[in-house]
């Protein structure tokens, strides 16, 4: 079994791709033998980051979204990047309930990513784009091959 592995994918910021992005990363994560709950956490966090890129990074246009997922031993790292609007105040954006998305959004995306994964890092520059890096250690299970 390979202990080091990665995938890279890119797609346009159409909402129909949200499901595809979740399934693709979940499929890659399967080699770490996650529990159903861990897989649910990964899918949810990816969905939050990708939806943010679609909704906030490219509000008026279709832009490019990139996902890189990497496995190093027991650790899964997922990097979601866009080249859209960017975030002026990252600390404020991470606050629960903070949203610029009106009543269609609840301002809980970053809070969910943070609590469903072990680590979340956000890099962003207004006008340049945003990169979210998520990490989760998948504990080896007893009786695993």
């Amino acid at each position: 079994m390979e202990r080091e592995n990665y995938i890279a994918l890119q797609f346009p910021s159409c909402s129909v791709n949200e499901g595809f992005a979740r399934i693709a990363v979940a499929g890659f994560a399967a080699q770490l033998d996650p529990t159903l709950e861990e897989l649910g956490d990964i899918k949810t966090a990816v969905s939050e980051a990708v939806t943010n890129a679609i909704v906030h990074a490219y509000p008026e246009e279709i832009g490019r979204i990139s996902i890189k997922a990497k496995r190093s031993g027991d650790v899964l790292e997922i990097k979601i990047q866009d080249w859209g609007q960017g975030i002026a105040d990252i600390a404020q954006a991470k606050q629960p309930l903070f949203t610029t998305g009106g009543e269609e959004r609840s301002g809980m995306g970053f809070t969910i990513m943070e609590s469903f994964m072990d680590e979340m890092r956000v890099r962003s520059r207004p006008g340049k784009g945003t990169t979210v890096v998520l990490r989760k250690r998948i504990m080896p299970r007893m009786g695993k091959k």
């Binding site: 979740r22 939806t51 959004r105 809980m108 969910i112």
Partner: peptide, 13 residues
Amino acid sequence: SFMDSSGIAVVMR
């Protein structure tokens, strides 16, 4: 079968 934060806004609305 799956829900993310988009569902929160749906329920609140």
